[in-house]
Structure formats: C-alpha cells, structure tokens
C-alpha cells in the first residue's frame, strides 16, 4: 500500500510548511480594527471592519486563552461549540455571533492563543442608553425592554446556560430599541484566565446567594434581571453596595433581613451579623412604575432562589399579558 498515492510517491512533505500556511489565517487580514469600544475584566472589544463582507462594521472581542499541554483547553472548545450551536437559533434577544477565529501562531511562545469572537455591532449598551436618555423612559419602552431581556434569559436557561453577569453593560440596545444579551457563555474560559485586576467588577446586580458564597443556579440571572428592570424605571441602579457585605446590607434594607430558617446553612456569614432591617416598599423607590411591574420585580427579587420566579414565569406575568406588547 505504501507505493500508492501521490504524497507517498514523493519525499514526505516538509511539515514546517504548516507554520507558513497558518500565516494565511491571520485574523488581521480579515478584519480591520477601528477603535476600542469596551474593556471588560477579561477582554477588549473593538469596533472593526469585516473586509470580506463589504466592510460591514462588527464588534470583535479578543480573549486570551492559555494553552495547555494538550493545546486548547477542552472547556474553551466546549463553550465555543455551544455558542456556535446557539447561534443556529438566531434568537432576536441574543447578540449575533458572526465568526470565531484566532490570531495564529505569533503568540505561541507565550503559550497562549488570542481568540477573536466576532459579533454584530450593536449601537450601544444599556448603560450608555440609560445615561443618555433625556428623561424617564416611556412605560411602553420599559415593558418591551423588560420582555426582551427576559426572553433572552429564558432562551439561555432553556439551553442550560447561566449568564452569571447580567447588567446594563452586558445588555446591548439596537438602534430600534431592542435589547440583546451579550457577554455570556465563556465563564470557564474566563475562570482559567488571569483577570485584569485593575478592572472593578460591579456587585450591584449580584444575588444574595452569590454574595454569601453558596451554590447557585439559573435563578441568579432572574435576580440580576430584576435589578435591571428596576433600573429601567428609575434610570439609576437599585442596590449600590461598595463591597460584598455592603451589597448584602443594601439588599436586606430593601427586602428585610431574611428569617433565620431561610438563611443558607453553608453561608459564609451568620444572619446575626446584619441588623433586623424591616422590608421596604418597592413602590416608594420606583414611584413611576406600573403596579404590575412592581409585582413582577418583587417576584424576581426574592431572597430564596427556589422561591424566585423563573424567567419563563416572568414572561407569563400579567405585566406582559394583561395588555398586548407593541
């Protein structure tokens, strides 16, 4: 058999050529970076031009992945595979992932690979949208944005993805005012990376179970969404703590201190370390909000994750069903 085939009739190809060929794949040749549009804890996002697609503007996220003894870590490959798979559904409230590529060989000496995730470019994030809003958002706009957010969250949850970091910076607002979720699905890739320590991670959207260091699940995203929904009404963050314990104080000043039997056994802090705050009325904090909106948000901001509404419950809430969405 060894005499058959064209490659075996010549001397074995010089495999060094593989490195030359990989130069053809340099991402830089496909996308032209324009400017930085966001620097998060784990990567930098650039506005870029897709040179192969008529100069379409895209958002390109650079993530550094540490290579292991056996190449690209399994967890990263799994996460990218899942992101790619999700994309097949083209969910309207999830940012489009257009392409994934890497920076080629040049980083080899550092034992890391630069991954490029190429997303559709969306006008702005919800943080800047709210900051730029000239006045309160209309009730209709709030309701639509709330529904968009919860639809996106429900979609992720139905594919067993927990976002873990829902906040206005990770929600994108299109020019027509639709909201799309971004910055999810790479938790394990991030975990293995050195975080840029200079970047402060906001605690304002963190649920109590995370702050208390107990196990968590999809309910974390419902909490965070609840905080964001409240913020749509007031255009200011609802719970602004400066550190973990301060954030818990903020939470309990709103909800009241949880009863002893509700306190998780494995919590890092005892319940007694908090004063016995009485619950406050959310309506006083969000005076403009529709009563059904308040009820929905209250159902999302429940201390016990098991008693919190699910994203699907939220979508079926009277706030959205009593009157048709426009």
């Amino acid at each position: 058999m060894s005499s058959s085939g064209s490659s075996s009739s010549q001397s074995p190809p010089n495999m060094a050529s593989i490195s030359d060929v990989s130069a053809l794949f340099q991402t830089a040749k496909k996308y032209e970076e324009l400017n930085v549009i966001g620097t998060g804890a784990y990567g930098t996002v650039y506005k870029a031009r897709d040179l192969h697609n008529g100069g379409q503007i895209v958002a390109m996220k650079k993530v550094k992945v540490a290579l292991t003894e056996d190449g690209i870590p399994l967890s990263t490959l799994r996460e990218i595979a899942l992101l790619r798979q999700l994309e097949a559904y083209r969910h309207p409230n999830i940012v489009r992932l257009l392409d994934v590529c890497h920076g080629g060989q040049s980083m080899e000496r550092d034992h890391q690979l630069v991954l490029f995730l190429v997303f559709e470019h969306v006008e702005q994030d919800l943080d800047s949208y709210l900051k730029r809003a000239p006045g309160p958002l209309s009730e209709n706009r709030i309701r639509n944005m709330s529904y968009d957010i919860l639809s996106g969250v429900d979609f992720l949850h139905s594919h067993r993805i927990v976002h873990r970091d829902l906040k206005p910076h990770n929600l994108l607002v299109t020019s027509s005012g639709r909201v799309k979720l971004a910055d999810f699905g790479l938790a394990k890739t991030y975990d293995t990376e050195m975080k840029l320590t200079s970047v402060v991670v906001t605690l304002w959207y963190r649920p109590p179970e995370v702050l208390l260091g107990v196990p968590y699940n999809t309910a974390v995203d419902v909490w965070s969404s609840g905080c964001v929904l409240a913020q749509l009404h007031s255009r200011a963050p609802l719970l602004q703590g400066g550190c973990d314990s301060e954030q818990l104080h903020c939470i309990f000043r709103l909800l009241g201190r949880p009863a002893r039997h509700e306190w998780p056994e494995s919590a890092a802090i005892p319940v007694d370390s908090f004063p016995d705050y009485p619950p406050r009325d959310l309506a006083a904090l969000l005076p403009r909000a529709h009563p059904q909106a308040l009820r929905l948000i209250q159902g999302m901001l429940v201390f016990d994750p098991a008693k919190r509404l699910t994203a699907l419950d939220c979508l079926e809430h009277p706030y959205f069903t009593e009157e048709p969405l426009t």
Partner: peptide, 27 residues
C-alpha cells in the same frame, strides 16, 4: 514519517489550522 520530527508539536500546530478551517463550528 509525514508526522515530522516532533509529531506532537505538529499536531498542536495543525489543531489551530483545523479550528480556523472549520471556523470553530465544532458541534
């Protein structure tokens, strides 16, 4: 012999070319 001098290194290099070629469409 087509695996070259350092077969593992060759496979590692090829992994990146493969990923780029199949556009990370892994599933």
């Amino acid at each position: 012999s087509t695996f070259g001098e350092d077969p593992k290194e060759e496979v590692m290099t090829l992994e990146r070319i493969l990923l780029q070629t199949i556009k990370f469409d892994l599933q």
